[in-house]
Design a protein around this nucleic acid. Structure first.
Lengths: 130, 130
DNA sequence: AAACGATATGCATATTTTTACACCTCGAAA
DNA sequence: TTTCGAGGTGTAAAAATATGCATATCGTTT
């Protein structure tokens, strides 16, 4: 789920993770949840998306429930029943959120790139105090 | 330990965490470990620093060991024995690392501020697809 | 050489997070 | 009206993390 980290001297890598939370702090929409949403958009099913993301259906469902409770709006239009059992698709609000998050993530990547480059350079200099 | 998150519409907050890892991925130097190192620098003792950071000595020691194993160089000069029992101080290499990390974190904060502002604005617009 | 207190370490016990599994619900299509 | 398979839900098991506790080690100071 996490982006492949960047290397520096001493075989050191920088990693990061971002997530959204509500006021109370309990409840979060993590990277993995967004990945799940993206897969639901692609595959049209929570079950298939969970499999694709290599997490249990139970966790997938719980994460979505938590996110919807936190945001206080629907992320997914869920259709149950039918010969095919059912299917799911993202709500317009969810698509918007997903887009905004993707853009946010991209900006993060760029920023991290720059910041880590400075870090790498700093690690090549002598310490200011002994 | 994590920075206080920023708010947007829907009482939404952005959180993030950064950490360093080695090649294998097992082993990490987290924000809390850097905070611990900073406290050791300030207090001259792993025990006191662990108390100040509100973590167990056991965890503090484990985190340091893990970090040193990962980096393959000493972060702390540990002195055992003596009337006072012993004390610890950061190595020059650790001081350098700490400085570089602090700068990295600051740049990160600034970038996050800007990126989240864009995110917040994006969330106020209509979705591109229905 | 005895004492003191922080470093050092194993291990058993929480706590948190994730998975596994059982079982029910739904409703279009056969 | 029966069937089918995904949606939906509780709960126990498992895995990953963190904590607590006991105990040994070290070496300067007294």
């Amino acid at each position: 789920m996490d982006k492949p980290p960047r290397q520096t001297k001493h075989e050191l890598f920088l990693n990061y993770k971002i997530w959204l939370s509500g006021l109370t702090g309990n409840g979060r929409i993590s990277d993995t949840t967004f990945a799940l949403l993206a897969k639901i958009k692609e595959l049209g099913s929570i079950k298939l998306a969970a499999q694709a993301c290599d997490i249990s259906y139970r966790k997938a469902w719980g994460d979505i429930e938590e996110a919807e409770k936190m945001l206080e709006y629907q992320l997914i239009d869920k259709q149950r029943g039918g010969k095919d059992g059912g299917h799911s698709q993202l709500t317009p609000a969810c698509l918007k959120l997903l887009e905004a998050y993707d853009a946010l993530h991209q900006k993060f990547d760029d920023s991290v790139e720059a910041a880590f480059e400075d870090f790498r350079k700093a690690m090549l200099t002598k310490p200011t105090s002994e």
